[in-house]
Design a protein around this nucleic acid. Structure first.
Lengths: 215, 215
DNA sequence: CGGCCAACATACTACTCAGTATGTTTTTCC
DNA sequence: GGAAAAACATACTGAGTAGTATGTTGGCCG
């Protein structure tokens, strides 16, 4: 094993350690909410103790921020990037909506935590460094929402979508989709086809409300 | 002042005392979330101390439950009752959607708290009495959702609404509407007309996706 | 093989906060 | 007007918990 391979493996192992803690945190926060979750709870999900958590993260807030960042990354890569492809606007939008719906289900812990509260923790006692991180996360969310705004605007321009208040419709659209994290819980033996059926049903409804009436 | 008038005034005063505490709790929970809000915070919003809160409520959880109950009562009276009126199903649904949207804005503190978490607190350390109260609240919510399910089913039956998965669509619909509590914050000098414009825009979008294509 | 460091575990501290017990003041009612 | 109860305020306790300081152990490197 040469030096670079070793270095890479070492970084992967370290990343895996962090990722395991992060995943446990996401699950714990999803169950009980941020404030009601103790670091001991997070460690408990790993069969470990506080030491392991604090080895990778400096504070509970940092853990929380990283869950958010990861969920935003998932959204951008899974759905946001579709906005930049080369296809009719309405087609892109439909695939974005479907992809977002599926993301809510397949990455439920991260998405659920992300949905239930960023701005809540702007008020609390945060250090300047944490405040900066928080602003970055808000920016990520805004950038993601803008992808939807842009695509819908393009759809209006090319006549596929009826004229409407784009910002308001995006809020409704993403609200309906994010709400999945409230009611969806994976059942035993849940299949991909099952999730796709639900995503399709919602997508059809939400896209249908945008179409120009064909008269 | 005769006996009944005095008794009534006495009850009103008592009810007002409770209501003031409840309102303060709703505002506090909305700001920081349930777990992160202390009873001292609630009392602080009233310019009072713990004694006043605990005089009307036995525990923090009871306060939380009452906020939920009140928000459900607002929904049932404001929007749910429309389901039982005598009018075409799609008309009733449209007015229910609009009414729900407006409720989210005009009763923001209660609605916001109610939206962000009932089931979260089923897990925690609750007494049997609290557990019973919690189930009653869940039943209230289910009954409210059923009003929407019923009206949409009637709309499909009379041909105004295209055939679709009713439960899934109601989840999307209420998700989009409940999401209002996430992004809406009253601005200084906010007017009723302003709120109604937003409610109308959302309602149009959400109803439009349900119509049978007129071919 | 011996030292060194990564990857944790353990032990402890300082603080917050729900709930209670007990005052204190203001009304109510006879 | 005076006792009793309502409507609070004050003082305290015990439990939980974020963060820290300090051990401990296994693996790798020379």
């Amino acid at each position: 094993m040469d030096r670079s391979a070793r270095a890479e493996a070492g970084e992967d192992d370290k990343a895996d350690g962090r990722a395991a803690v992060l995943e446990a945190a996401a699950r714990a926060f999803m169950q009980d909410g941020y404030a009601a979750t103790s670091i001991d709870d997070v460690a408990g999900l790993l069969g470990a103790t506080k030491g392991r958590v604090y080895y990778y993260y400096r504070s509970k807030a940092d853990l929380f921020f990283d869950v958010h960042r990861e969920s935003m990354r998932q959204n951008m890569e899974g759905a946001g990037r579709i906005a930049l492809e080369d296809a009719p606007a309405l087609d892109r939008l439909e695939r974005m909506v479907r992809a977002h719906a599926l993301l809510m289900m397949t990455h439920l812990p991260f998405q659920r935590v992300s949905v239930l509260g960023v701005e809540m923790h702007l008020a609390g006692s945060t250090t300047p460094r944490q405040r900066k991180t928080l602003n970055e996360i808000v920016d990520l969310r805004d950038a993601y929402e803008r992808r939807f705004v842009d695509v819908i605007s393009q759809g209006i321009a090319d006549g596929a979508i009826r004229p409407l208040d784009v910002k308001m419709v995006v809020r409704g659209l993403l609200g309906a989709l994010n709400w999945i994290t409230v009611w969806y819980r994976p059942r035993a033996g849940e299949t991909d086809a099952n999730r796709e059926r639900m995503a399709d049903e919602l997508t059809t409804y939400l896209i249908n409300g945008l179409r120009r009436d064909e008269a």
